[in-house]
Amino acid sequence: LQLFIKTLTGKTFTVEMEPSDTIENLKAKIQDKEGIPPDQQRLIFAGKQLEDGRTLSDYNIQKESTLHLVL
């Protein structure tokens, strides 16, 4: 599923993930694309901070959802 990642600077980029992927996987993918170390990434969806060990489906993140990346 394609997700939109929006940064505080207003930049938006996309990543391609599976619902079974963990937040950790997502942070690694963001590191590949943007060079931001996972330990500096905080991801927010629907007002909640996402925890590394959980999956996208745990948070009911669907295709074309927008996640906010806070550094």
Score class of each variant (00 low, 15 high):
Phe13Gly: 01
Pro37Val: 06
Lys48Met: 13
Ser57Asp: 15
Leu43Gly: 00
His68Thr: 10
Pro37Trp: 05
Thr55Ala: 08
Gly47Val: 02
Glu16Val: 13
Thr14Gln: 13
Gln31Lys: 11
Asp52Gln: 05
Pro37Glu: 07
Leu43Lys: 00
Asp58Phe: 15
Glu18Pro: 05
Pro38Cys: 04
Asn60Ile: 04
Asn25Ile: 14
Arg54Thr: 07
Asp52His: 07
Ala28Ile: 12
Thr55Ile: 09
Gln49Met: 13
Thr66Ala: 04
Asp58Ser: 13
Val15Asp: 00
Pro38Glu: 14
Glu18Asn: 15
Glu51Asn: 06
Ser57Lys: 14
Asp32Ala: 13
Gln62Asp: 11
Ile30Tyr: 01
Gly10Arg: 07
Leu69Cys: 02
Leu50Val: 05
Gly53Arg: 08
Thr14Leu: 15
Ile30Met: 02
Phe45Asp: 01
Asn25Gln: 12
Leu26Phe: 02
Leu3Arg: 00
His68Arg: 07
Glu18Met: 13
Glu18Phe: 14
Lys48Gly: 07
Ser65Asp: 11
Phe4Lys: 11
Leu43Asp: 00
Thr66Ser: 06
Gly10Gln: 04
Thr7Ala: 06
Ser57Phe: 12
Asp32Pro: 02
Glu18Ala: 13
Leu1Pro: 04
Ala46Gly: 14
Lys48Pro: 01
Glu34Pro: 01
Arg42Asp: 05
Ile61Arg: 02
Gly47Cys: 04
Gln41Phe: 13
Phe4Ala: 06
Lys27Tyr: 03
Pro37Asp: 09
Phe13Ile: 10
Lys27Ile: 02
Thr9Ala: 10
Thr55Ser: 14
Gln31Asp: 06
Leu1Ile: 14
Thr12Cys: 05
Gly10Leu: 05
Thr66Gln: 07
Pro38Thr: 14
Leu67Met: 04
Asp21Ser: 10
Ile44Cys: 05
Thr9Phe: 08
Leu26Val: 08
Gln40Thr: 08
Gly35Phe: 05
Thr22Leu: 13
Leu3Gln: 01
Thr66Arg: 05
Thr22Met: 07
Lys33Ser: 11
Thr9Tyr: 13
Leu1Met: 14
Thr9Ile: 08
Ala46Arg: 11
Phe13Gln: 02
Gly53Tyr: 12
Leu71Lys: 10
Thr14Ser: 11
Ala46Pro: 01
Lys27Thr: 02
Lys27Gly: 01
Ile61Lys: 02
Leu26Gln: 00
Asn60Lys: 08
Lys48Thr: 13
Leu71Thr: 09
Pro19Trp: 08
Glu34Gly: 07
Lys27Asn: 01
Pro38Asp: 04
Lys11Thr: 10
Thr14His: 12
Ile5Tyr: 01
Leu43Glu: 00
Leu26Arg: 00
Tyr59Trp: 02
Gln49Cys: 05
Glu16Tyr: 15
Lys27Pro: 00
Asp58Met: 05
Ile44Met: 12
Leu71Ser: 09
Asp58Tyr: 12
Thr22His: 05
Val15His: 01
Ile61Pro: 03
Ile44Thr: 06
Lys33Asn: 06
Lys29Asp: 03
Leu50His: 00
Leu71Pro: 15
Leu50Glu: 00
Thr22Ser: 09
Glu34Cys: 05
Leu56Arg: 00
Glu24Pro: 03
Asp58His: 11
Ile30Pro: 00
Tyr59Val: 03
Asp21Gln: 10
Asp39Leu: 12
Leu56Asp: 00
Ala28Tyr: 11
Glu34Asn: 12
Asn25Tyr: 14
Leu67Pro: 03
Ile23His: 01
Thr12Met: 09
Ser65Cys: 03
Ile61Leu: 07
Asp58Leu: 02
Leu1Ala: 05
Gly35Ser: 06
Gln2Lys: 08
Lys48Ala: 10
Leu1Thr: 04
Gln2Pro: 07
Ser57Gln: 14
Lys11Met: 08
Lys29Asn: 05
Gln31Met: 13
Tyr59Phe: 04
Ile30Thr: 01
Gln31Leu: 10
Leu71Arg: 09
Leu26Pro: 00
Phe4Arg: 14
Thr66Gly: 03
Gln31Ala: 13
Asn25Leu: 14
Gly53Trp: 13
Glu64Thr: 10
Arg54Trp: 11
Gln2Ser: 11
Pro37Cys: 04
Glu64Gln: 11
Ile36Leu: 07
Ile36His: 12
Arg54His: 15
Leu69Pro: 00
Leu56Thr: 02
Asn60His: 10
Glu16Met: 14
Asn25Val: 12
Leu8Trp: 13
Phe13Arg: 02
Tyr59Pro: 00
Gln40Gly: 06
Thr7Cys: 04
Asp52Cys: 03
